[in-house]
Design a binder for these strands. Sequence first.
DNA 1: TTAGGTTTGG
Length: 781
Amino acid sequence: MPVQLLKIIKGQSEPPLPSHLQKEDLKHLQEGIDHTNKYFQGLVILSYPVTTLRDGTDFFKVVLQDMDNSCSRINSVNILIYGKMAEDCAQVVHHGDTFVVAGFKLAKSPTAREDGRHDCHLEVSEEAGSAIYIYSKQRTTDASKAALMSVAPKYVYTPLNHLKDGTVVNLYGIVKFFKPPYISKGTDFCSVVTLVDPSNEKLTCSLFSGNLDSLPKIYKVGDIVRFHRIKIKEYNGQMQGITSGGFASLTFDGTVGAPIVPRTSSKGYSFVHEEHKTVEDLRVWAASNLSISEPAIKLSGVQPMLFFDLTCQLVAKAKVDGSSFLLKVWDGTKCPYPTWKVPVKARDLEGEEVLLRRLRNLTVDILVYDNHVHLATSLKIGSFLRIYSIHTKQASADNDDASHIEFHLHGGTGYGRGIGVLPESNPDVKDLKVFLESVDLSNSQDMESMSSVELDDTFYSDEAFESDLKRYQQLPVTVLTDHLGLNNTELKTILNSTAPQQYRIRAKLGTYKPQKLYQAVKLHCSKCNSLQEVPHEDELALILQGSAIPAPNPELHNTSWYDSAMWITQDQKQRKIAIHFVRHEEILQEPENSLLMMEGGTLKEIWKLTKRFKCVIPVRSTEHGLDLLDISAPFLFQGNKRYYGCKQCSTPKPINSLSSMVAQQQQPSWEPTEIAEVLGIEPLQYVFVMKFTLVDGTGALDAYLLDYENFFKIPASQILTTDFLQQKMQMIMNALCPPGGKLDDFPWLECFIKSYNVRDAMEHQVYYQIFDTTIVEDVIY
DNA sequence: TTAGGTTTGG
């Protein structure tokens, strides 16, 4: 048997290694030496997932450390295992096992320079007559023994376009629609699930079980399921799936690159290497062929007359009457509309009173009806829920005409209406918990007054307005961050002086340009001092489209520092997309910390990836290797930020330069400035460029503001992609220069300005720039 | 058995 598990009993191998084999030292692993009857022994310090090479051969790589020479500079060696042995070996080997390899072939290691290992690697395969012996550090489980002996049951999975009436099959599918489990009119729980697969066929399944736990744990459209023993029946001319005896299911997150952890109640399920690949392949297919990842709606984003799914935490609950039940929930954001409060007696409300009071501005009342009441009654306070297809209804209160929003979960299960309890391990719950903990409750009062000012001035009293106005009139709305010894100078004096000089002034903002604030954002190169426009979305889309030619070159895939995946979109365009996941110390980092490179992706696809991964670099294949795109495109996407480089000052280097960051740093933090430096990019900074016309009764002066984030305390880099910041900036400008107001009522600004000369052949002009000045914290509160 | 996807009354 080419792969064999052995034990060490009383220091001896049991069974013993074949007697003709002799141990070979790492330093004797050299080309030209005969290793026929030799074996090499080392400790498994790394192993990679099994991959399939282009010719269909399975391939598995492990790294062994030579324990006899563990202090040497080079003490590890790559073992490349091909064919059946790759699979056999992968199923039983663990980190820390002692690994013996005999009958290997020696070859130069192409990655020795980067990985610092032995300059040869060992090639191993059944065809070459190799043998592997493993002394397992972990107790060998029955499952792995079974796998080694190839007796693990092999399941056959039927594509959805090959289903036949009356059969019982196993299948995989991507959830296109689902109803979370509810109590059926019979005796069981029911969940209806519609699947699709790459055959583009649909299958709707009715799943029943007396045990809630044995129904698939689907949390969102796009999840991937594996069903075993589902019965296929024809109904109304279409195939339909129904639970049959022994039905079992696994459910996986459908996000490309997310950990592959099955959700199931089955204890002894089998899930082998090929199935990992099946799940990842389905994820990749879904990512490019189905539009399922609609951004989730938070309470801050609700609109009247909307059906939406809400991920939230239960704060309190109460019985209202026989057919309706109240759930008070929050998600940390504030609904921008006044919300309906269902009248219930305080003693009927189950939930912590103190918490209810603290969260009163952030909780919303959801009234659930009929069939949902039973499940709602059983919910635990504090649990995390996803409530599907909540209806937001706009209604007018009787006593005045201020309208409010009501949240209803109507009776029935149409459109997947229902309530699902999410486990704490759910990634959305993890995110929500972090967010809820970050919510500053002392601030929620401010947030409330802010949205009230903006949306409903009846909530903002005249007295409050008067007092704020008074405050504005007395105190300047700016503060100076330096040079405090300087006295104020009248604008008239400044206008009559020569440049360059610095002044402290007290003035009002008569007007400003541009009035459309998004036009104020530019890209600034601090090296050559040039200003550039931020490329428009359409422009970016075109650049990315152009970069898709030429198609990804498979020769550049799967190198020593990144793993690649490529696929073709199934739409008419048949676009080729490749993603290269950068590895670090042989392992992929957590998605949220990792960097990936993408070829052929659209703006939307890149945007989707940035939700999941820390950095995305768009690249293209050239004859030399992977390169950055045209420098007009961002060289990096991080979160909702796009990083651009200066055309004049950058000298882009090949993408391979990034591998040095992977090699040098234990945990690359992927700082944009560092990435830029490594790639030869001179980064551009987002900056607000505005012209303020300042007046003080003695004169008027145009001063330029060039601000990254100090003046407004808003990062210019985020304003274009963040609605909230745009609103905040608009409110600041409205406070500095109230639209329609009289100059007398405008607030005072204290600023530093400096004058400077600009000369050309014909003209000489003096310009002014604002510096070391910032807006006071509470200007808009 | 139950559901068989397709909202909206309270």
